[in-house]
């Protein structure tokens, strides 16, 4: 099978859905973060595939570059928040962050 646009899109879809399930089911805050990374990577695969196989050209690659950079920044901030959460609750279980619940 020669790779074509839809095969790349399938991979992107699988990564995206895995990331969403990961975000929904993991109770570990860092596991949730990993889900976010998977979702962003699914989007990146699509960008690069469109840049190769359609008239999008170089713009797709520039977009995925920005996505990678912003994902790194997002991970740094989210990790800082997780560490703060851990300092306050002594756990990284996101279900325990229910102080504001009415």
């Amino acid at each position: 099978m020669q790779p074509d646009l839809s095969s790349y899109l399938f991979i992107g879809a699988v990564l995206f859905v895995c990331g969403v399930i990961c975000m929904a089911t993991k109770r570990n805050a860092i596991g949730v973060l990993m889900g976010v990374e998977l979702v962003l990577n699914g989007a990146n695969v699509n960008f690069v595939a469109f840049s190769k196989y359609t008239a999008l050209g170089l713009d797709g690659q520039v977009f995925s570059l920005f996505v990678i950079v912003l994902a790194a920044a997002e991970a740094a901030v989210a990790l800082a928040i997780v560490l703060n959460f851990y300092n306050n609750h002594l756990t990284v279980d996101v279900d325990r962050g229910n102080k504001l619940k009415g």
Binding site: Y8, S51, K52, Q61, S64, L65, I68
Partner: peptide, 15 residues
């Protein structure tokens, strides 16, 4: 494989 060599290297380095 999708001719995005710099993005691939950036993915390895950053991610």
């Amino acid at each position: 494989l999708a001719d995005a060599d710099f993005i691939g290297a950036a993915q390895l380095l950053i991610y």
